[in-house]
């Protein structure tokens, strides 16, 4: 779908941007879903060729918002988009985060730009669930500013920075450890290493854990089979599957379904 840019502005740092687009698709994105963005105009440029996947950060009536970090050519091009520009967007795609159960205490764990899907999730939480906590791992205290929008929603935010410039020093997963109770449920998104550590944490504590995963994608709609990740022994036995597709069966998975050692 061809969407018009409402705004595209830097947020928190000079490499993070918030892109708001008009949204006329009937399907409104739900928390955890993503879209595939054409970063170049396919009618004039064949490079970069493939669309880039982005979590939906926020969505309202007639618009969606993406939070992205400039890491390469595609995202650099995106950062030059201006109000009124057209971008082709495919979506919403993938499976959403399951709605947390009444009895469960929600712990969100985000690393860096992995914070993106948690804004919409936090926004759509029922009032009774507002005691949810977000553990946010950032590189520096400047990056840690990305958690401000979620804090504003009334969610408790606990920051860890790798350089110790703000909050707890060290990895975010260390901070989560002391916080897990038996009725906790963990939702995590971030770098693979962080997700792996979080999945292990959840397994050791015997609590449910959902992770939002990344993988190289070409199509985003389950046909190229390019985004496959190794499935756990469990899935192999029960579903006779060796791989799961991140785009169509995910990006949100129960952490038990993934073979973490093979990633």
């Amino acid at each position: 779908m061809n969407s018009t840019v409402i705004y595209n502005k830097s947020i928190a740092t000079d490499v993070h941007f918030l892109l708001r687009l008009k949204w006329s698709e009937k399907k409104i994105p739900t928390p955890g879903q993503f879209v595939m963005v054409s970063v170049s105009d396919a009618s004039t440029s064949l490079d970069p060729l493939l669309r880039r996947p982005f979590s939906v950060f926020d969505a309202g009536k007639g618009w969606i918002e993406l939070l992205y970090r400039v890491v390469g050519r595609g995202t650099s091009l995106m950062s030059t988009l201006k109000k009124g520009d057209k971008v082709d967007v495919l979506g919403p795609l993938g499976k959403k985060f399951p709605t947390p159960k009444e009895k469960n205490k929600l712990i969100m764990v985000a690393g860096g730009i992995g914070i993106a899907p948690f804004y919409l999730l936090s926004k759509t939480l029922k009032n009774s669930k507002k005691d949810a906590v977000l553990f946010f791992g950032a590189r520096t205290k400047v990056d840690a500013r990305l958690s401000a929008p979620i804090k504003k929603l009334g969610i408790k935010v606990k920051v860890s920075t790798e350089d110790g410039s703000l909050g707890r020093a060290g990895y975010v997963t260390d901070a989560v450890l002391d916080f897990i109770e038996k009725d906790s449920v963990i939702y995590a998104c971030g770098p693979m290493g962080m997700l792996k550590a979080t999945a292990k944490l959840a397994k050791d504590a015997g609590v449910l854990c959902y992770v939002s995963l990344e993988s190289s994608m070409a199509c985003g709609i389950g046909v190229c089979l390019g985004c496959a990740l190794k499935a756990s022994e469990d899935v192999k036995k029960t579903k006779d599957k060796e791989y799961v597709l991140v785009c169509s069966e995910g990006p949100v998975f129960n952490s038990k379904d993934i073979e973490w050692e093979k990633l």
Binding site: L49, L50, M217, A218, L225, G226, C227, K230, E242
Partner: peptide
């Protein structure tokens, strides 16, 4: 057939390489 371990695709200038 289950296919190859990942990464299975990578983008290259105006193209992509796949090893599905």
């Amino acid at each position: 057939r289950k296919g190859n371990p990942g990464p299975r695709i990578v983008e290259t200038p105006s193209g992509m390489i796949n090893a599905i």
